[in-house]
């Protein structure tokens, strides 16, 4: 770990000002991924700005019935927040499917969005990686890629985003409120994370000098029909091979009124395609309609040898998650 200076900020403006004066600085909150990466010599900030003292710890209902979550609310506090449990159980489930109780106690909501990939090559400073060192190459393409992307990958990078929480946030159409030197702006969740393209070093559209201050959920929470299905190599404390956030609203006759579908573990960002959801609207809940939506969502999926299985696995997981969401009220 490279030595670094440390400073503490109490207000958002103060944090931004510190950052503006120190281009080598990074913000730190839970630190669960940043310190991990610093110990691997993957991240080498010259300064850490501790933002845990910022007043971003509240969860509040918005004027239009949504929920505004302060960026510093811990993953555990968010998952167990009564409003989240009651109105957004999909989010609670997704959070609790990730990491461990210890990490969830530490990790912040904003930080969860900024988790970096678990690609073996990215994490090992002794080998090439375009995400870590642009232009050095991507050994994963022809190497060990069982855990890698099947959608949206580029020649330069086939890494996946590791978060569970973000898959639910994508399905729920959350927005991300960020503060920067030029003031505040709101980013749709779908636009927050990006595909690797020819800039795999960039995970998202947050500027270096910007800070996430809040995540806002719209009023629609899909509390009745939802499922978060995570498929992994052991029963707990492992990253997803494939995960699915499925949310439905159903008409009185059982047909689908509204649908949301997002995948984790398959791409550089939570994977969502409105066309798949369109295919579900007005349809009955059955294997056929679910299968069509799965096919649509997985259109263009491509494996790299070890991860070929993820395409079929994802299809089956989508169908299963939709079945769970459709058939069960409350927790699946």
């Amino acid at each position: 770990m490279t030595p670094f200076a440390y400073a503490r900020a109490r207000q958002v403006d103060e944090a931004l000002a510190l950052r503006a004066g120190h281009p080598e600085a990074r913000f730190i909150a839970g630190g669960t991924n940043l310190l991990d990466l610093m110990k691997e010599n993957v991240a080498r900030p010259g300064m850490l700005i501790d933002i845990t003292g910022l007043p971003l710890h509240d969860v509040e209902t918005t004027a239009d019935g949504g929920l505004r979550i302060g960026a510093l609310v811990s993953n555990a506090d968010l998952a167990y927040h009564p409003e989240v449990e009651r109105r957004y159980p999909l989010l609670a489930q997704a959070i609790l499917a990730g990491a461990s109780p210890q990490l969830r106690n530490m990790a912040s909501t904003g930080g969860n969005l900024l988790q970096r990939t678990r690609c073996y090559y990215f994490y090992d400073a002794g080998v090439p990686c375009n995400k870590r060192e642009p232009g050095s190459g991507c050994p994963a393409r022809d190497g060990l890629n069982r855990i890698h992307a099947i959608l949206g990958a580029s020649d330069q990078c086939i890494a996946v985003h590791p978060s569970d929480m973000c898959v639910a946030l994508a399905a729920l159409e959350a927005t991300v409120e960020v503060a920067g030197p030029a003031g505040r702006r709101v980013i749709d969740f779908a636009d927050f994370h990006r595909l690797p393209g020819d800039q795999p070093q960039r995970d998202n559209t947050l500027e270096d000098d910007e800070l996430i201050v809040a995540i806002t959920l719209p009023a629609r929470g899909f509390a009745r029909h939802h499922a978060y299905l995570k498929v992994r190599d052991r029963a707990s404390y492992a990253f997803a091979l494939v995960s699915v956030a499925a949310a439905l609203e159903r008409e009185a006759d059982g047909r689908i009124a509204e649908a949301r579908l997002a995948l984790g573990g398959v791409a550089h960002k939570p994977w969502r395609d409105p066309r798949a959801e369109d295919l579900l609207r007005g349809q009955p809940c059955n294997a056929e309609s679910f299968g069509r939506a799965a096919d649509a969502l997985l259109q263009g999926a491509q494996g790299f040898a070890h991860n070929d299985f993820k395409i079929e696995l994802a299809r089956r997981a989508i169908v299963r998650a939709l079945e769970q969401a459709a058939s069960q009220e409350g927790t699946p």
Binding site: Y120, Y121, D124, G143, L144, I147, R234, A235, S236, F239
Partner: peptide, 25 residues
């Protein structure tokens, strides 16, 4: 433990990626 034969190197060298059973298993 997975070996990348191009690099001649074990790559999943962590307890996050070298899986051993957890309590829930």
């Amino acid at each position: 433990t997975q070996l990348d034969h191009h690099l001649g190197r074990f790559m999943n060298h962590s307890l996050a990626e070298y899986h051993i059973p957890v309590q829930a298993d």
